[in-house]
Design a protein around this nucleic acid. Sequence first.
DNA 1: CGCATGAATGTGACCGGTCACACAAGGCGC
DNA 2: GCGCCTTGTGTGACCGGTCACATTCATGCG
Lengths: 345, 345
Amino acid sequence: MNVTGHTRRPASIRDVATAAGVSYQTVSRVINGHPSVRPSTRERVLAAIDELGFRRNATALALASGRSRAVTVLTANTTHYGYASILQGIEEAARAASYAVGIGVLESAEDAAVAAEVQRAADAGGGIIVIAYDPAGVRALGAVPAGLPVVGVVETPATPPGGDRPWVWADDREAAYQATRHLLSLGHATVHYVAIPSSTRRTSARTGGWRQALKEAGAPEPRPVQSSWGPAGGHAAGLKLAKDQSVTAILCGNDDLALGVLRALHESGRSVPGEVSVAGFDDAPHSAFLTPSLTTVRLDFTGLGRSAFALLHGVLEESAPVAPHPVSVPELVVRESSGPPPAGA
Amino acid sequence: MNVTGHTRRPASIRDVATAAGVSYQTVSRVINGHPSVRPSTRERVLAAIDELGFRRNATALALASGRSRAVTVLTANTTHYGYASILQGIEEAARAASYAVGIGVLESAEDAAVAAEVQRAADAGGGIIVIAYDPAGVRALGAVPAGLPVVGVVETPATPPGGDRPWVWADDREAAYQATRHLLSLGHATVHYVAIPSSTRRTSARTGGWRQALKEAGAPEPRPVQSSWGPAGGHAAGLKLAKDQSVTAILCGNDDLALGVLRALHESGRSVPGEVSVAGFDDAPHSAFLTPSLTTVRLDFTGLGRSAFALLHGVLEESAPVAPHPVSVPELVVRESSGPPPAGA
DNA sequence: CGCATGAATGTGACCGGTCACACAAGGCGC
DNA sequence: GCGCCTTGTGTGACCGGTCACATTCATGCG
């Protein structure tokens, strides 16, 4: 090991070559595991590498070979539970594969801003993963120039794509369906829905699953309440719904929204689950500890992130066969916030 | 603009040079804003750049010049509110300065694993920001080889460092002090503390602020309850404290912990704030919407992240003067979860 | 025994930029 | 009219790897 205190320029393969008495190309062969290197030579080179503390320069590798072992994740948000968990999953998988992970935040959904951010991601080299749950993400996915390796993390598509499309998704349509059926099965006449901002299409996957469950049960379909991502949005929506005495069950587009709704119901003097049942979406870490604890549907966001990376990895390197990603089954988690409707209803 | 559909190799400065009828060096001068280029020449080059859709190759730039306009953030976690917010702040500032942001997660605090992750960050080139609120982070900060540009985001240091040290921190010591004084001022005999895992030192900054407030008030100092980061840890700690009828005020190391404590008190039949007051730390987005809403101390994590980047930016480029980062003042947010102790106590 | 074959290694060019320096043309002072 | 400085531009080497090809030497086979 290099123990000299000087912060000298790090050793290059030519330094190693000189130290080992071979050509730089032989060093290159050794670090790349090329078979036709005499064992004794390999030994000497490895010794020199160790002695000089050589590390292969990632920048030079990227420039010379074109491959860069890097992913850039484009996302509108890094703090919300779902987004953060997907990012975590990507990072895990990327680290395991020795890939570097970069992030770019889509602060605005405006076309020019999105395009600029996509450009930056493209400049970084390597692959791109776009989290396309919102308008900014959807636009970014669309703005990625053809030919670049990219994978989208999207809502459940209306019709499953050809199987080889570079997209992954959690089955949030099914999740919404399950949650709605759960509430209906408790005896509620219908279920109201507080929606997260849709990705761009008229009907988001979550809304679709909710609607389907209502339709199958012959329940009336109330207008969904459009909201934002955070608890404040849920709070506002909750205050509105609380005024309507006929509302006995509310499904929320995510757990943060549900939190706001719970608070609004509390402030309006309506008890949960006595008078109104509430269900969330995502099973965020805090949901089990709320009072009342929140009935919700768990989605495996971390696994989704891992799948996204695996798919991209397959696109970037021929090796790993691009198995169509396993859509994990959402899991209904029944807690205190849902129960039968009040007797009078 | 290049409108041909072919995914051809992107244009290099030599392509632009040929198109504009100049040498590649002149193109280099134009894209770097070098003054001595005849306006008419500059014009022609810019036209060629536009026509070919030329973008400067970041990898080649990094290799040739040594500067890489990139930051890698090393952190033990990306999903907890504080960490995620710091990351968000860093990203914002980095984006504004046209820097790429990479992340590396310290999954284990084990020395070898930490060292490997630090190596990866170093390999990426550019600067490093280490979030050192926990043992893994602290070790990573220590493992960064001398000579590399690095900034640490740390707990309030016991004695403010020389002013030019590449560290930033929020005043969490003061924040804990304020929260504790608030609870004492309501009439509580003392305040119990549920601690997040300390960074490594015996006494964390938060613990120190709490202790100081107790000491100044002449209040007895109960043993802090060591816990984890998430609500589950707070729940366990809360169940223990709930059994002790003398406990009337609890300060928690963060809002997630406080959430778990609230739940534990609820399950134990102890009312908040009637019998027990609870205060959190960080003012996470959901804290205002809990029932009861959570008294907490707000820390500007996003601003902290921005400061960290600004400091690193100053280290990497001589330009921006390295103003010592402004330690923002924590803000006590009094909500429903704190009140006077029960009459009998 | 001569030659094709393959293993082990070396040489030069290249990736796309930057840097140091050379060089031509024009303006100015003397 | 000469030298000198400044402005504008071009040439070659270099950053640290990879790639394509050349070279050397030992081996197998007709």
